[in-house]
């Protein structure tokens, strides 16, 4: 099977970091090693032949059975060339961190914070590494991990609810 031209270029530029590439339903996804995420992204952004200047989204997927449990997913778009590319990198649970790409795309700041908030993947050199959607004091873990129950872990049961009866009593 021949590779997509963009995947071929990445393979030629980063032979050590390139892991695999897959094209499905017109979407190109290239998996690279997580150590190389900064040079690969920097090159995708700066190289005039690639020119992926627009960041679409940053996501993560949890595969609890896999050796490297988490998969980081970055989606980029080139406004001038009107092309899309998806870059993926695997992160293990033991070393649950990856370099932040905020230095290349400023928009990645909030997107990476969301990934950290939801799945607990840390970002090295992130300028503002905090939770974003969940409260700062939230300590039940990472809600979008597959081992997190849908109903939560019981934190909400400790809330004081104002029911109709208690309202009357205070009156």
């Amino acid at each position: 099977m021949t590779l997509h031209p963009n995947a071929e270029k990445i393979q030629a530029q980063f032979p050590d970091a390139f892991v695999s590439s897959k094209e499905w339903r017109g979407d190109l996804a290239v998996t690279v090693k997580k150590e190389a995420i900064i040079p690969v992204c920097r090159w995708l952004h700066d190289d005039p032949g690639m020119d992926f200047d627009y960041i679409v989204h940053v996501a993560s997927v949890d595969y609890p059975e896999d050796e490297a449990r988490f998969e980081m997913v970055y989606e980029f778009y080139s406004i001038r060339r009107r092309q899309r590319i998806r870059i993926k990198a695997r992160v293990t649970e033991e070393d649950c961190a990856i370099d932040s790409i905020t230095g290349i795309w400023k928009g990645a700041n909030f997107m990476e914070r969301e990934v950290f908030d939801m799945m607990g993947i840390r970002f090295n050199n992130h300028p503002d590494h905090r939770r974003i959607l969940m409260p700062d004091e939230y300590d039940e873990g990472w809600p979008l991990r597959k081992d997190f129950p849908l109903a939560g872990k019981g934190w909400r049961d400790t809330f004081e609810f104002i029911t109709e009866g208690s309202h009357k009593k205070t009156k």
Partner: peptide, 8 residues
């Protein structure tokens, strides 16, 4: 440039 970089 900034608008693109921020993903707006």
């Amino acid at each position: 440039e900034d608008a693109i970089n921020f993903g707006l």
